[in-house]
Amino acid sequence: MILRRMQEMLARLYDVPIGHDVEDYVIADRGRFAALTGESCEADEQVAVVTDRNEVRVGVYVDQQVLDRLERRDPLQHLDDGNLEDFCTALEGVSHFHYLMWSLGRARGVSLLELELQADVDKYAGAVKLLTRQDEGRFPTALHRRLFHGVSYLPGLDEESRRRYQEANRSAARFCRSLEEKFLRPRQSRPEAWLAELRRFFRCSHQEKLRLVSL
């Protein structure tokens, strides 16, 4: 149940438990996901929201091969170059689900850009927490470049989606680097302040998030 454990990790990281288990919403078959949600799925991860009158239905797709590899090489026990990509793929889906359900529970609207921005921050923050814990407190200095530089996108993306992903990537990279420089520098490390800023960011509105990432 790797996705559930990732959700629990995010809930602890941000202190935002929700009453929904991501595993109950997972559709691991690409064709079934498309049939149930009415959305085609080209990526290895996708979250769909279908509204029907007063009902909102959510489906989470993560490719079964990604899940199988993560079960064999558990990143929550040992995250490294061999499973980092699969970790990020799965965590992106979990992040979208978790943030969406948390927002819906508070009657908050969520933009697609906001979802992507939060997911990029979640992937970085989650990896930082895991790697520092697994490596006796040493900060993973190469992680920021690995996650935010040289990013590629699906070739079939429309221009609007590509711009959204690129903006989310740039904004998250700037925000995460800023927190890193303020709170995680050697000899001046204040991980508790880093965590507090992450939690504040999570709870911000869309406009507040955009303001923070532009500072």
Rank of each mutant, 00 (worst) to 15 (best):
Ala34Gln: 09
Val49Met: 03
Glu39Ser: 06
Arg30Glu: 04
Ser40Asp: 12
Glu85Thr: 15
Val56Gln: 10
Val60Cys: 05
Asp81Met: 13
His78Tyr: 13
Val47Ala: 00
Gly38Trp: 12
Asp29Ala: 08
Val58Ala: 00
Leu84Lys: 10
Arg32Glu: 13
Arg32Asp: 06
Glu71Arg: 10
Arg30Gly: 01
Asp80Pro: 04
Ala34Thr: 04
Leu79Phe: 07
Asn83Ala: 02
Arg73Pro: 03
Asp52Gly: 07
Tyr25Thr: 05
Leu36Met: 12
Glu39Leu: 09
Asp80Phe: 08
Asp63His: 14
Ala35Thr: 05
Gln65Pro: 00
Arg73Glu: 15
Cys41Pro: 01
Arg30Lys: 13
Leu67Pro: 05
Gly82Arg: 14
Leu76Asn: 09
Ser40Val: 04
Tyr61Val: 00
Ile27Phe: 03
Asp80His: 15
Glu42Phe: 13
Asp74Asn: 15
Asn54Gln: 12
Val66Thr: 12
Asp44Met: 10
Glu55Phe: 09
Tyr25Trp: 09
Val26His: 07
Thr37Tyr: 14
Val49Trp: 03
Leu84Pro: 01
Glu42Cys: 04
Ala48Thr: 04
Asp63Phe: 06
Leu36Trp: 12
Asp44Ala: 13
Arg32Ser: 07
Val60Ala: 01
Gly31Lys: 14
Gly82Tyr: 08
Arg72Tyr: 04
Asp74Gln: 08
